[in-house]
């Protein structure tokens, strides 16, 4: 199962390196959001710093949606999804492969966009960078796990680009609330670290439950 998933993830990433369609769009979008935010909020103003944790997750969520939608819709051209479904593997391998590719891409966007955001807003991290990376990892994991499943569900619809955000935002709101709260604490007020860890635990539990659910249910979603 893992070998097949890895082959699919490798294929998606290689496709992306070849076409530069999705990742490029995601990074450009993230850059534009940061630029607009820097004009809207004065970076010199101290109250602006309070916006940063939210801005981090706005960038991740909106640029993530661009990639999620594309990753499954692209398999409809020439019915390549049928090619994957008739191959000797479980449908969950397709989900796992797509998840790994999407997760890698969102991590790349984060690596580029978050330092750019901090730089433009002259934001100095008062808390722990390691905890911040952990929050980014846990939050992105849950967002992409649920997003990949819902993208597969929405890809059968003609208006998948509209349907995906409508399904995704309500489903991922516990993850987004949790990670935004944890990010705020970790970046600005390390004294409340136990509270951030509690948020992180909640999100991690949500991630595990939904990842397992998506893994088990994907077979029914992908059926022709």
């Amino acid at each position: 199962m893992f070998r097949a998933a890895l082959t699919i993830a490798k294929k998606d990433i290689y496709s992306e390196l070849r076409t530069k369609q999705v990742l490029g769009t995601m990074i450009i979008f993230a850059g534009l959001v940061i630029l607009v935010l820097s004009f809207a909020f004065d970076p010199a103003n101290n109250t602006t710093k309070a916006v940063i944790p939210g801005a981090v997750w706005i960038i991740i969520v909106f640029s993530g949606i661009l990639g999620l939608n594309r990753s499954l819709v692209s398999e409809q051209r020439n019915d390549t999804m049928h090619g994957l479904l008739v191959a000797p593997m479980e449908a969950s391998s397709i989900y796992l492969g797509k998840f790994m590719a999407n997760f890698s891409m969102i991590l790349i966007v984060e690596i580029v966009a978050v330092p750019f955001l901090f730089l433009l807003f002259d934001f100095k991290v008062n808390g722990s960078i390691l905890y911040f990376i952990l929050v980014l990892f846990v939050g992105s994991f849950g967002f992409i796990a649920i997003g990949t499943f819902l993208a597969a569900l929405a890809s059968n619809s003609k208006s998948s680009e509209m349907l995906l955000p409508l399904l995704l935002f309500p489903m991922t709101s516990p993850v987004l609330i949790g990670v935004t709260q944890a990010t705020k604490i970790i970046l600005t007020n390390m004294e409340k670290l136990p509270s951030a860890i509690a948020w992180l635990q909640l999100v991690a539990a949500y991630d595990v439950i939904f990842f397992v659910l998506c893994f088990l249910l994907i077979e029914y979603v992908l059926e022709v």
Binding site: K11, S15, R18, R77, N78, D79, T80, H82, G83
Partner: peptide, 8 residues
């Protein structure tokens, strides 16, 4: 359908 990836 061909089931092939166009850009490959």
């Amino acid at each position: 359908s061909s089931l092939l990836y166009d850009h490959y």
